[in-house]
Nucleic acid binder design. Structure first.
Length: 415
DNA sequence: TCTGGGGTCCTAGGACCC
DNA sequence: TCTGGGGTCCTAGGACCC
């Protein structure tokens, strides 16, 4: 017997822009963009002009002179995204939240209560519309990959159900870039071989795909093109890393530029880690030069750290080393820090391994403990009075604010 | 006015161990 | 003096996703 199509992929349409149009009826039916310097989200009316997320605001205005920029109601995005996803929870516990506006759900165990998967999908769409006032598209299929493609095809504000016996007929006529894992580079490489549809990809030799995309990617795409998707619904997974970045414009590659930026980033990351009693062993920095090329440097420690001052020091050292390797680069446009190899830390056994010799190790231990209690004091003050109520020395003036912190938080994954 | 921010996974080379 | 190979970890870079 064939497996039934019980996987749903639900995706709120042009989410931030739809929320703005919901909150301000005068914006409905008009091309709007959330953001300013950069477009964070565009309404469908704006997308019709070619306006897309991530696009510089100036470029967007060129494409669509009547474009209306609106500020973000971040609290509302968070509330409405959660509320929409909670509608899925009312049908099944098997929900995998992908982001603020997107989730998979498996309704295999609840059709006897609520009807067929297609009927459940209709109910979900109807409830999100009537209770929250937001359009949401849903794809229904036997696999996650196909359900996701179905919801993309359904947009805007639609429902597409893929019957198990019509899967390949549905899939093979679609362009390759609808597939999970095909971005601009892969799409271009495939196009150079004359492969533009998923059907053409499916009929390309494994050997050719190997050479073109590498063994793992080739095999994966071929499996997906034949609708063999091994991925299952994962109800809760935790992030493997925590990071933060800051675009700087075009700034001299000097310590007095990157030091306060790194301190701010380390502060954000350290706060998040400590809030979840986590610490990480690997610190990675990225430096992007003025021409947008970037380099990374990383360091893996013996023991995990979470103290802001330690993260800052290591990040500074790594950035110094990266810049020293590229002395001809005089300007930088972005710095980033990421902390990985995360571990739950039961006690204050942190940052002990800063020196090789015994004395140094003891000094390092004392310093680590002192840093940890300083961080805890700051964390507690922020819990009561808000994040901006206190900051580390040179960060106090918060000079790097290309994007509001509230927007950053929307993109953070659960640690 | 030269493009935001938070993530995941894969590859490839080298060090090191057995 | 020359010769094998597997496994794991670390580092750097890159593609991709939302």
């Amino acid at each position: 017997m064939e497996t039934a199509a019980t996987i749903l992929h639900a995706d709120l349409d042009a989410f931030y822009a739809s929320v703005e149009q919901l909150l301000d009826p005068s914006l409905r039916g008009k091309p709007i963009a959330v953001g300013g310097g950069v477009v964070l989200a565009a309404s469908y009316e704006a997308k019709a002009f070619g306006v897309k997320g991530g696009m510089p605001g100036r470029r967007a205005r060129e494409l669509c002179p009547q474009l209306i920029f609106v500020g973000g109601h971040f609290k509302e995005y968070s509330r409405l995204g959660d509320a929409a996803m909670k509608v899925l929870d009312d049908f099944t516990p098997l929900v995998e939240r992908i982001s603020i506006d997107e989730a998979f759900a498996d309704v295999v165990g609840c059709t006897h209560l609520f009807g067929s998967p297609a009927e459940i999908a209709r109910k979900i769409r109807q409830r999100v519309k009537s209770e929250l006032g937001l359009p949401i598209s849903v794809g229904v299929a036997r696999t996650k990959h196909l359900a996701k493609i179905a919801s993309q095809v359904a947009k805007p504000d639609g429902l597409v159900v893929v019957d198990p016996d019509k899967e390949l007929a549905f899939l093979h006529g679609l362009p390759v870039d609808l597939m999970w894992g095909v971005g601009p580079v892969t799409r271009q490489r495939l196009a150079e071989r004359g492969v533009t549809t998923i059907g053409e990809l499916a009929n390309t030799s494994p050997h050719a795909l190997d050479r073109l995309l590498g063994p793992a990617a080739g095999e994966k795409l071929l499996a997906l093109a034949w609708n063999r998707d091994p991925r299952e619904i994962r109800t809760h997974h935790r992030a493997q890393s925590a990071g933060a970045q800051s675009a700087l414009g075009r700034k001299p590659a000097t310590a007095h530029v990157y030091r306060p930026a790194l301190a701010h980033l380390a502060d954000r990351i350290g706060t998040r880690l400590r809030a979840k009693s986590l610490a990480g062993r690997t610190v990675t920095v990225r430096v992007r030069f003025a021409d947008l090329r970037s380099v990374t440097r990383s360091l893996t420690l013996d023991a995990p750290i979470a103290a802001t001052a330690s993260l800052t020091e290591i990040a500074e050292e790594l950035v110094r080393a990266a810049l020293a390797d590229h002395p001809q680069e005089k300007h930088i446009s972005l710095v980033a820090i990421s902390v990985s190899h995360l571990e739950k830390h039961p006690r204050l056994q942190l940052e002990f391994s800063l020196g090789a010799r015994h004395e140094e190790r003891r000094a390092g231990t004392r310093r680590g403990l002192a840093r940890h209690s300083a961080d805890r004091a700051v964390d507690r003050i922020r819990d009561r009075f808000g994040w901006a109520s206190i900051a580390y020395g040179s960060v106090a003036f918060g000079p790097f604010r290309s994007v509001p912190d509230e927007f950053r938080e929307l993109a953070e994954k659960e640690l």
